[in-house]
Design a binder for these strands. Sequence first.
DNA 1: GTAGGGTTAG
Length: 603
Amino acid sequence: MILRKLVKVPNITSRTHNSLHHRMLNFSTLFNPPFSPKPPSHLATNVIKSYFETGRVREARTLFDEIPERDVVAWSAMISGYSSCDLHTEAWVMLREMLRAGDGVQPNEFTFSSALKACKGMNSLSCGALVHALALKLGVLGNIYVGNALMDMYGTCCSRMDRAFAVFEEIGAKNSVSWTTLIACHTHLGDGHGGLRVFRQMLLEEAELNPFNVSIAISACASISSQVYGRQIHAAVFKRGFESSIPVMNSILDMYCRCNGLSEASRCFHGMTERDIITWNTMIAGYEKSDPYEAINLYSSLEFEGLTPNCFTFTSVIAAVANMAVLGVGEQFHGGILRRGLGDDLGVANALIDMYAKCGNIMNSCKIFNEMHVKNVVSWTSMMVGYGSHGHGKEAIALFDKMVQSGVRPDRIVFVAVLNACSHTGLVDEGLRYFKSMVSNYNITPDQEIYGCVVDLLGRAGRVKEAYELIEAMPFMPDESVWGAFLGACKAHKLAELGKLAASRVLELRPSVAGTYMAFSNLYAADGKWGDYARIRKLLRRMGSKKEAGRSWIEVRNDIYSFVAGDKLGSRIEWVYEAVDILGLHMKEARHNPDLECLEDGT
DNA sequence: GTAGGGTTAG
């Protein structure tokens, strides 16, 4: 009777549970009654599993330690339990203890599949390869669970897709998990095309569609921004009745959000009968950039539905606040984050650094950054971008050096941040040094964005010839971001001929960019060539293309007023003009000469 | 009595 009660651990209250646990510690009394010749360790294993399922890790370990003769099932339950609770290192330590115990217990296929999951969780290729060797020695590689787990480990740890694929090829009778795992490995590595190739192969080999492989295939479409493929799979989802699966629908929402289909995402979202927190997070993230106001509205509806926001929710909501630059709202969300104990989450803290910087409060960004216990490359980048946009280029650069000293390896995006900081502070030679170091010390191949930054760095400082030489020396065709940076330099330094060359290149690459025509016509105007100026303007009008209006907004006593140049906000617009006049006076006092040519009526 | 794949944050 007592044993039957113990097996039902998850359903009991904590007080009852604690008292039971207190009695359970005496293992031999409970599990080895006088009439039983051998300890029924399978019952203890049952309880261990229940403990892990309810997160009672310490109790599981205590009970395990009490078992006099641990068999392979008990060891496997411990390794699996730790790994399921995301305690992968503990699972690994357990495996090592098992192998060293010297009691003749050998790992089986259950032990290996759980151990490989732990290696994947630790992102340790060396541990995974050790398990692989041992599994080979003990002849369990033919087991489908072991094969699939091995493939997953290789595909995740250090991106060894070559080895993952070799394992996949060796699996004789692949099952649906084998296919899903291989598609997921490709997709999670950012190779959506590869994921879809495998998905297509899976269909050719007449493997069945299921919610698992469909979710990851849609995620692959999202990663390559292909709404065309995404819609095809959406149609298959509809046909097979997988629309009742929340993860499948969440994937579809995410795909539409990332593939310029926000209205379609919204339609699907409203059609869902059941939604979880990931559904809401996906939509909030989808609206965060293009319609941050709606993202914040969604947050309110989520709370109204009684769901609990998590760190993903706040990361997106804080990003929405940053895009609107509404400090008061951001502070309120920050309070909510602290009340829920989510302030220590890395993603949330990174978003807060960015939000405070974009809302003009760089001091709070610094405070959050300095108080973080763990920082990743995004934390350092966010702080550097913040410093850069506040005109503190030197602080941004100092931070880069500090980051390297702390052992964080810079990625491509950090270099974008440091180059921008150098560019806006006029630290041209420092910027060029970082550009060279990126290639020689960190083996990062510069892409269009990086070249655009360096062209901007040289161009702003008036070193336009060097900027042009850099463009000429690029190992690939410069895109519109590179020529755009060059065009900006020509405009700033009134180099009409070179500017026309740059503008024509941008127009060749993206003929629909109205902003380029504007810059182009301004160059003619600056050059006094009014006939050419009129011709471009006429062309622009004929295209029906309109440069998107630069929108500004101001927060006055908790109300936000948004406007474009020449807009009328009733009597309140006077406040804005008054503020602009005061800024102009400040500029004159500081002996800055405002460039009024950049002002365009109605834009 | 012990093992598996999918969805959200820069």
